[in-house]
């Protein structure tokens, strides 16, 4: 495992820690899209089916279980916790996320490396992850007040994917990995979706101003 990959995983983990911190200590999920969180549960459930079929390492298995457990936990808090659920920005979380699921299903059925259940579901999870942040980005744009933890959460989530791209470049150049169209293009699309957010996040950080996205 190279440094970029490790940093990417740690950023991903840290983003979840930041979100859980907001939910468990501030008891709020204001500005967090339940739709994006539900899409992540679907992403992890479909991608990590190989937990039952293939063993890579203790690290790999542990991380998969953490991502599955925390994503389900977050959705549970947002839907059912009696204090947290009242802070959910339901009226602003309006993105039609079913459309993203449908699009990813169609794309995975059309474009995949092999036509078997695990492979198609794995491909589906990559396509869905690429666009899963969209409801969250739309919600942020509608929020007049983006708190620091929410901004940091989205930034860390974007940084994770950017670091994964560096990891792929490293593996390609140093570890003889082949060019893989499906994960690479999905990953590039996913990272590109954050470009606008990164720009405003870094700008607000440099000017020590509160983060605000133009409508």
């Amino acid at each position: 495992m190279n440094l970029f990959r490790l940093l990417g995983d740690m950023t991903h983990l840290l983003s979840i820690v930041v979100l859980l911190l907001k939910i468990r200590t501030v008891k709020s999920c204001a500005g967090i899209s339940l739709k994006t969180q539900e899409l992540y549960v679907i992403v992890f459930l479909t991608r990590y089916l190989d937990l039952f079929t293939k063993y890579y390492s203790v690290y790999n298995t542990a991380m998969k279980l953490v991502f599955l457990g925390t994503s389900i936990g977050i959705v549970w808090y947002m839907r059912y916790h009696k204090v947290v659920k009242q802070t959910y920005s339901k009226d602003e979380d309006t993105f039609k996320h079913y459309f993203l699921i449908l699009l990813s299903i169609i794309l995975a059925l059309l474009i995949h490396r092999a036509f078997d259940v695990i492979e198609v579901l794995w491909t589906f999870s990559l396509y869905l992850e690429a666009v899963a942040i969209l409801p969250q980005l739309v919600l942020l744009q509608k929020s007049r007040n983006i708190d620091t933890l929410t901004g940091d959460y989205v930034f860390l989530l974007g940084a994770y994917r950017a670091l994964y791209i560096l990891n792929w470049v490293y593996r390609f150049l140093m570890e003889n990995h082949k060019f893989r169209w499906i994960p690479w293009i999905s990953g590039l699309v996913q990272t590109a979706l954050y470009a606008d957010f990164f720009y405003y996040y870094i700008k607000s950080w440099k000017n020590r101003e509160k983060l605000k996205l133009p409508a």
Binding site: D9, H12, N60, M63, W168, H177, K178, R180, P183
Partner: peptide, 10 residues
Amino acid sequence: LKEKSQKDEL
């Protein structure tokens, strides 16, 4: 030869 897929990633 070990398979160079990307499924060892998360």
